[in-house]
């Protein structure tokens, strides 16, 4: 599987490295502008967070394009590798790339910690850690759902494939929401948990600290989403083996 990931990376190498470079550049530019024009700390941080977040989204989109290209590539379809690996390879690569992005962000923030002793709220690292972990989980779930939708649209022998793919995504989201809502009415999936501290503790956000409201990690929905992902991965593998043709 590592070999597959290597080639997934090589195909997009320029775009990935370019993305990291542009992201870091933008971060630096924002920082400089904030210094020069005396922006509020919060504005700068939010802008920079948004930049990182956009980069992450770009990586997810890239993973989808990689997967889609692989499904249509003669070279990929002829090599004797397990179908499961074909499905997993772009996902794992994406995970690694996101972790690298996060590491860059962490480095960035750590630098701030040195340069501006008071900029970071109390408990910042702990809360961010939880938040990022939840976000990562949410991203993976989302990507697996996307993978499945892409697989479905490639399995169909007729036109209008893209719309079917999008429809599948909506349906999946709906199902997941319903199941979680029924079984665990009070908690949210990874995506919700990641942002919960924002919504409920907005008024606490100041230079001195923010608090996390509610639980950091909810085992119920996490389990459901894990099972959900496993089912989708299995289904995607089956579809690629039996139904996707070039």
């Amino acid at each position: 599987m590592l070999k597959l990931m290597k080639y997934d990376f090589r195909r997009n190498r320029d775009q990935i490295l370019g993305l990291y470079a542009v992201t870091l550049l933008l971060e630096a530019v924002i920082w400089i502008l904030a210094e020069v024009y005396h922006w509020e700390n919060l504005s700068m941080l939010v802008l920079q967070a948004v930049t990182y977040f956009s980069a992450a989204i770009f990586l997810v989109v890239l993973a989808c394009r990689t997967y889609s290209t692989n499904l249509k590539s003669y070279g990929r379809k002829l090599i004797p590798v397990k179908t499961l690996y074909t499905v997993l390879s772009p996902l794992l690569l994406n995970l690694i790339l996101l972790i690298v992005l996060i590491a860059l962000a962490v480095l960035h923030v750590a630098i701030y910690g040195f340069v501006y002793p008071d900029i970071l709220p109390k408990d910042f690292w702990y809360i961010s850690f939880i938040s990022v972990l939840n976000l990562l989980g949410a991203a993976m779930v989302f990507l697996i759902a996307l993978t499945f939708s892409i697989t479905v649209s490639h399995s169909l022998p007729f036109r209008s494939k893209v719309w079917i793919g999008i429809l599948t995504l909506f349906v999946l989201n709906l199902i997941l929401g319903l199941v979680e809502g029924q079984l665990f009415p009070d908690s949210g999936g990874w995506m919700e948990l990641a942002f919960r501290y924002n919504f409920t503790s907005g008024e606490y956000l100041n230079a001195n600290g923010i608090e996390a409201a509610g639980k950091a990690f909810d085992i119920g929905p996490a389990l459901i989403e894990t099972v959900f992902c496993l089912i989708l991965l299995y289904a995607s593998t089956w579809l690629v083996k039996k139904k996707v043709e070039i």
Partner: peptide, 26 residues
């Protein structure tokens, strides 16, 4: 070993890359 009517290679590759791809997987 199949040679289809579409290329087996990807456009970012050099001939050397293509050989390496084959030796990696076969």
């Amino acid at each position: 070993s199949f040679m289809p009517d579409q290329p087996l290679t990807e456009s970012w590759m050099t001939v050397g890359d293509a050989l390496r791809f084959y030796s990696d997987f076969f």
